[in-house]
Structure formats: structure tokens, C-alpha cells
Design a protein around this nucleic acid. Sequence first.
DNA 1: TTGTAAGCGTTATCAT
DNA 2: ATGATAACGCTTACAA
Lengths: 352, 352
Amino acid sequence: MRVSGNTGRGVTIYSVAERAGVSIATVSRVLQDSGVVSARARRQVLEAVEELDYVPSGAARSLAVRQHDTYGLVLPELSGPYYSELLVGFETRAGELGRGVMLLLGGARDLAKPFSTLASRVDAICVFGGLAAHIGRGTRPIVVVAGGAPPGVEAITAENVDSADELTEHLLAHGRTRLLFVGDTTAAPDVLERYEGFTRAHENRGLRAAEPVHVEFRERDGIVVAERLLAGDLAADGLVCCNDEVALAIMARLTDAGMDVPDDVAVVGWDDVMTARYVRPGLTTVRQPVHQLGARAADRLHELVGGAPPRATRNVLPTELVLRGSCGCEEHAARPQGATSQTYLSTPPPRK
Amino acid sequence: MRVSGNTGRGVTIYSVAERAGVSIATVSRVLQDSGVVSARARRQVLEAVEELDYVPSGAARSLAVRQHDTYGLVLPELSGPYYSELLVGFETRAGELGRGVMLLLGGARDLAKPFSTLASRVDAICVFGGLAAHIGRGTRPIVVVAGGAPPGVEAITAENVDSADELTEHLLAHGRTRLLFVGDTTAAPDVLERYEGFTRAHENRGLRAAEPVHVEFRERDGIVVAERLLAGDLAADGLVCCNDEVALAIMARLTDAGMDVPDDVAVVGWDDVMTARYVRPGLTTVRQPVHQLGARAADRLHELVGGAPPRATRNVLPTELVLRGSCGCEEHAARPQGATSQTYLSTPPPRK
DNA sequence: TTGTAAGCGTTATCAT
DNA sequence: ATGATAACGCTTACAA
């Protein structure tokens, strides 16, 4: 039988109770704002808390209420605005729901151990599509964001096929005849879907789409493609790139070597990064509702934890084309650098 | 007296023990890899874990070991590469130390409650400079990163005064005579330090520095400054901006209006964002060791939790100037867009 | 309105 | 090598 419970050195709820001259139950009540407490008791407890500089043990609370009040987020990295915005959306919504966020970054390391450690500390987990394979056994509620999910696991993703189709058709309509898709379709489900749209646009015109040019996501990978183009190893009058970083790197290298974008070759990308509206010509790209993606994920986790059944159908959020000069659109070509001349193919959302 | 301990619905260490035909102590031993366990027992436990899809309770563990094995990170936002890199550095190092990371984003909301909730769930906290005021009472080990810390609290920051001095002197050496500092010196300690360097460079030449032009951090704020310049409300032949976003926005708007950068006015910034090397002229800027800043913070937290005494002296990390065309450097001015023509004033670190 | 006491699911100390 | 069992610090019926 415990007498004071205040055996250790740390200041606990027992210390506070003792100092305030009340029971630990009362302390808990005022701190949780639950139950009824006399003004006098409340004041004394608050005073004691202040004087003792008391910080409750989240672990003890979690254990007692059998809930961590924390959601986990697993991302591969944090370069560029994409992941950051996803994270912000997630964290913001989680905060609104009164939940904390534990972050796990994929990097190169083996995720198995970190992942299960994470699972032991949170109520539910949101994992980024490309990392879905790392998911262990399905004890915690999980949603996969931006990518395919194993059967039974809920998925939330931005629309890819249609916008890729639309973007490709746009290039085709500009009179381009030899389009290349640049991106590793095996690396991420998103990229594969974009290639599908690329293919579909060709088929709709009775054309046959070229095989994808597999490259990674980074700037240096774009350079490589540009070099191959310049060397004649690759031929194209239009490039549909898996993201803006690659697109921008290609554009820069090509321009650098004396080629003209979009006259010699049109270049388009995905993400609408900041640089896209600062380069000349502006980069035509696809803007994704990344913030909402994150927010939606947090929402769904919350509902799942609350006992809601997982959704069978994929949760798909609409994207929008941002037309600037790099695709060959005349009206944007002449604008000087820095002008944010652009056309939205769907209603632009308010920039947060 | 507890009989099975397995009263609830969840699968606990008791369920595993029962299924494996051993005691919970043995289960704990094999899971923690502590103590000696027979191969047979180990196998049975592992099997039971697998079959039951057992996820340990991090809360219970934390309570027992009186440690969360998690560090908190408090940031104001996540726009641009600055905060992201800080976060990545922090998370990476924390991961290496076997610690999880809980993230709290400042935004507009009141941080008091979220902050103390965070404090109850982690062993130590790293808070970004501008948010230092939100720190409650000092129960947990804390480090402040990129900014001033209250007395007694450890601080880690990038060098600001010297590099600002150097950058300003560089502009002065280019023959510029009317320099303006653009940034809110009251918003962040970092900005104030940069203005100090700006002032010092002037004093070293017997000149008097102009008062700072107070603006926020964002692109739109840069636009405002550019408009004032164009309207003649402000006069300058050189702009030292508190960050690249503002600098780029100004440059773009000015160029747009027919002015020439750097001929009419030189523009420099801070952070070396991606766009800085894609615009023409390239933006001269200061690169900060943000990743290391984060990593160092995680390291220090770890040491503090381990019982090390807080350091009295500020931990200052060196920065480097990145010279491109926007400051008036001839050799970079002529390079076509996209070329990463630049000069480092100190050894460039390997890009991670 | 307040207090008592039974959990919550681990770890770790003793015995055995 | 293994098993009881006492913490760990909190929440929450249930009593008073």
C-alpha cells in the first residue's frame, strides 16, 4: 500500500496535493477541469502547481486514459515545399483536434524499428505513399497519403491521372508531337498515375506515348536528362516532368546551352514551387492541395481512432493546372521575370 | 491483487506472456533484449508477439523508466527551406540518438497550453528564437535555437553580425553609397543582429547607417518595399534584406518595372533558397548551417538530459557568403539563367 | 465537494 | 533462467 506516492525526486501530483492540502484526486480535477472543485481548493492547487513548478507526466496520463492523444506522421524527407505543407496541414489540424504530432523522417535508414517505436507512442499513424511498404502489422489505425495503400488501409491522395491527361493534352494542343515523360514511375505511385494520364492523353488522339524516362526527384537528375537531350541521346519537343525541381533544372541547363524554352522544347512540372513563378519563362505546373491533404489525413485518423470504419474508396482531392510560359502559352511568354503571370484552369484557392 | 492483469480488451504484455507460457518479466526481457533468456522462451515470446500483433504501450514504458525518450521541437512555421532544414537536422540527430521527435508549430495560436502539453510528453525541448518568450517555467531542459535565450537558458545560433558586416562591406566596396536594411529588427533577434553588422560596416568606414525599413518576412512584404522605392518614397542603391524571399520579391518587382539589378540597385539576402540560384542575376546571399543548427540542438538536449550542465556561452555556428550577380559582382552578372555561377567566401560545405 | 483506492501496462528488483 | 511483485504517476469510479 502506497502512503504518499511521492517517493522519487521529481515533483508529482502527490507533491502538489500535499502542498495544497488536498488529495491527488482534487489536484487532478482542477488540472483537468473535470468534476466540481471549490474555489478555495482550486486556488490552493494552482498555487502549489506554480510554486512547485509542476509538470505532469504525460506518460502516466496516457497510461491511465489509455490514449496518447498524439498522431504520428511518417515522411521520406522534407525538401521542397511539398512535404512541408503536408506536415503543416497535418500538424495544424491535429492541433485543432487537441492532438500532438510525432514526426518520423524516412531518409535512408531502416524504418522498421523506428516505425514500431512510433506505433507504441501514438494512437494512429499517417504514412506517406512511397513508404507504405514499411507499414508493419495493422494494429494502429493508419492512413496512407499520396500513394497506394495496401488493401484495407485507407488512402488519401491528390488527383493525378486527370490532371496529367489535361496537362499532356495541353501540350499536344500546342502542336507538340514528341512528348517525353520524365520521372521514375516505379518510385512512387503518384508518378505512375501521372504517367497513366500522360498515356491516356496520347491515346485519346490515337497516339502512342513514349516510355517514361526514369529519373529521381532531384535537380541533379534533371541535369542528366538535359545533357542527354543536348547530346541527342534523347529527342523531344515537350517534357512532362514528375516535379518542378526536375523541370526547372532541365529548363535551366537547356537554356544555358542555348536552347529556347518553350520554342525548342516545352517543359512542365508538378508542385508549383516558388521558383516556378520567378524563372523566365514561368513554369507551367500542377498545384496540389497539399495542405488539405495533410489536414484531411489528420481528420481521418481522428475519426478512425474514434471508432469510425475505414473508408473503402480512395479519398481523392482535386488539383489545378497553373499555366505560365514554359508550355508555349503565348500570353505568358512575353512577361518579364518575376511577374506572376499565370492562368488557373480551376479556381485558385486562397493562398493561406 | 491482480490476477492476470489482462482485464481490458487490448493486447498487452500479459496476453503475450500467457500465450507464450512465460511470465511478463520474461516477455519484457526478450523485448528489451536485457537479462538472459533461454532460446526456447525467446522463440515462444516472439511467436506470441507475432500472432497477437502485439504493440507495446509506450506510455507504460515511459512511466516505468521515467523517461519519454522523445524531444520536442517548437517552430513558428515551416515555409521556405530554413525551418525544414532545421527540423531535418534535429530529427535526424534525435533519431541517431534513439529519440523520437514531437513537433509543435507556432502559427498564430496561443502557444501556452500546447507548449505545456508538449512539456508533459517529452524529456527536453528545443524552441526557435522568436518563440522564446513562450517558454514557461524551466522544468525541462531547454535550448533556444537561432535567437536570444533568457538568462540561464542555453542558446545555439548561426553567426549573424560578422556576416552582415561582411556582406554590407562588400556592397560598400562595390561603390554603393545609399544602403538600406530591409527587415523587422524587432521581430527576431537574428534580424537585429544582422542590422548590427550592417551598422558596424558603415561605422568602419565612418559612415552612418540608415534606420531599418521594417517589413515582415514574406514575398508580399518585399513587393511593398519595391513599390515605395519606385514611388520615390524610399531611395537606395543597395538593399540588404533580412531573407531571400523578401529580396527576390523586391528584385522581381523592380526588374518588372524596368529597373536594373544590380546596376540601379543591388539586392542581397539571407538563406540561399533554391530560387536564389535560378533567377537572373543570381541572388547574393548568406548561407547558414541550418542543418547543423538542428543537429547541435538535439545533441545538446541529449547531453542536458544526461545531466550535463547548461553552457553559459552562446553556441555560435559559422555562416558563409554566397556571391552571385545581384550585388554587382561582374564575373557573375553575365552568366545566363540557371547557371549556378557563384563564389563562396568560405569553404562550401558538401551539399547533403 | 472531497477522499480512497483500483487500475492503466510497463520495467526492474528480488527471490528462487 | 525465470517468476512474483513493487513501483512509475496519473484518472476515475465509488464512498463519504
